[in-house]
Design a binder for these strands. Structure first.
Lengths: 208, 208
DNA sequence: AGACTTATGGGACTGCTGTCCCACAACAAG
DNA sequence: CTTGTTGTGGGACAGCAGTCCCATAAGTCT
C-alpha cells in the first residue's frame, strides 16, 4: 500500500499546491475521458496553469497519466450474490473485466504503450499498470483454495490474466482481424479453457 | 503478398537510389541488432547519409524499422521430421516461437510499442507486425483438418497466438513478476490447454 | 506594515522529430 | 561545351518535450 493512494504526500489537503494539483489532474482526466493522451503541456493549458508549474508536479506524460488514471475503485468484479461454481465465477469476472477494458480501450492502449517505453527500473518506481485484475481473478478462483496449492492458483491466475487483457485484445483485433465482440468471446473461451485444464490436469508448471 | 518483399518499387536494382536505400537499411539493421530502436537520424548518421536524404526514403521511425525488421525467413517452425501428434507439434512450435521472441525481445517490444501508436488506417497501409506466427501455428495444427472445421481451426490458432506472443510475455514478466523462463513455461502450458479444450469441447465460439 | 517563505509565471535554452527549400554534384544527351 | 535531369547535402524552420532560472505574486509570521 504505502503512499499508493496518495502519491503526493507533500501536498496537503488544502492550500495552493493542492488546488494546482487538483486542477492539473482534473484537466488530465477530462482529456483522457475525451479519448486523448494528454501531455503535460496539454494538461497545463487546460488547467490554466503555467507549463513550468505543471512540470513541477509531473516530470512527464507517464506520471501525469498515472495520476489521471481512473482508479476503478471496484474491489471486486463479482456480482452481488456470486455463484459458487468456479467456472461461473471466472466467467462473470472475465466478462466484467473485458467490458471495462473495451469501455476505456484508447486509454488502455496508451497506458500499455507508455509502459512498454519504460525501463525495468522505471517500472519499479512508477508502476503504470498495477495489475488489479490479478486480485479480481484470484477472487473468482477462491473456491479452489484447499483443493489446489496457493502458488498453483497464483500461476493459474497469471496465465488467465495474461490471455485476457488489453494486450491480447489488441492483437486479436489488430492483427488477428477479429471484431471487438469476437475478440472478447475468444478471451472468455480461453479463460474457461485454462481453468478446465488446471482442474483436470493440474496447474501451470513452475518451470519447463 | 503483393509488394511486401520489395516495398520500394520505384527503387531499381542498381543506381544511386538503390545504394542509398541499402546503406540506410543496413545501418538500421545493424543498430537494431545491437538492441537499439534507431530513429531516422540514427540510421542516417551511421549510413553516412544526410538527414534530409534519409527522410526522403523513410517518413519516420516506424517505416524505417519496418524495413529493417529481420524477415525471419523461416517458413516453418517444425523440426525436420515433425511428430504426427498435434499436441507435440504445437508444443514444438510454441517452444521455437517463444525462443525466437526472447532472442529479439527488445526489438519485439519496440515494434509492439510503435504498432500501438498507429491508427487503424496506418495499420492497414503499413503493417508493422505481419502475424507470421499465425501460419506457423496453423501448420502445427494441420492434423486437425478433417476433424474440425476450417474456421474453427482458425479461431483456435488466433486464441493460441494471442496468448503466446510478446504481448502476454511482457505482461507476465513486467506485471506478473515471472522470470523469462517461467513466463515461457506458462505460455507453453496455456497453448497446450487451449488445444486440449478445443479437442475435448470444441473450438472457440464465433460469438458469445 | 515589514520580513520571510512558498508557489507560480514566464522566458530562455537544449535536444529531438519532421518539413521545406535551395544549391550543387553527378550524369546523360544533344 | 551546354542543357537538363536526378539525387544528395545542408541549412532554415516549426513543433514538442523537458530543464533551468529568475522575478514576482501570494500567503505567513511577528
Amino acid at each position: 500500500m504505502k503512499s499508493m493512494s496518495r502519491p503526493y504526500a507533500d501536498v496537503g489537503r488544502t492550500g495552493q499546491k493542492r488546488r494546482t494539483l487538483d486542477a492539473l489532474v482534473a484537466a488530465a482526466r477530462q482529456l483522457v475521458a475525451d479519448g486523448a493522451a494528454p501531455t503535460v503541456d496539454d494538461a497545463a493549458l487546460v488547467a490554466g496553469v503555467a507549463r513550468s508549474t505543471a512540470y513541477r508536479y509531473f516530470p512527464g506524460q507517464r506520471e501525469l497519466l498515472a495520476a489521471a488514471h481512473p482508479e476503478t475503485a471496484a474491489t471486486s468484479l463479482l456480482p452481488e450474490n456470486p455463484p459458487a461454481d468456479v467456472a461461473e465465477r471466472l466467467d462473470a469476472v472475465v466478462v466484467e473485466f473485458t467490458r471495462m477494458i473495451l469501455e476505456t480501450e484508447a486509454q488502455q492502449r496508451t497506458m500499455l504503450r507508455l509502459s512498454l517505453a519504460q525501463t525495468a527500473d522505471e517500472r519499479r518506481s512508477l508502476p503504470l499498470r498495477q495489475g488489479r485484475a490479478i486480485t479480481w481473478i484470484a477472487e473468482a478462483l477462491s473456491p479452489l483454495q484447499g483443493q489446489m496449492a496457493e502458488t498453483d492458483i497464483h500461476r493459474l491466475v497469471l496465465a488467465i490474466r495474461s490471455a485476457t487483457g488489453i494486450e491480447s485484445l489488441a492483437w486479436l483485433t489488430d492483427i488477428g482481424g477479429l471484431s471487438r465482440d469476437e475478440a472478447v468471446a475468444s478471451q472468455r473461451w480461453t479463460a474457461r479453457a485454462l481453468l478446465q485444464q488446471a482442474l483436470q490436469h493440474g496447474a501451470p508448471p513452475t518451470e519447463d
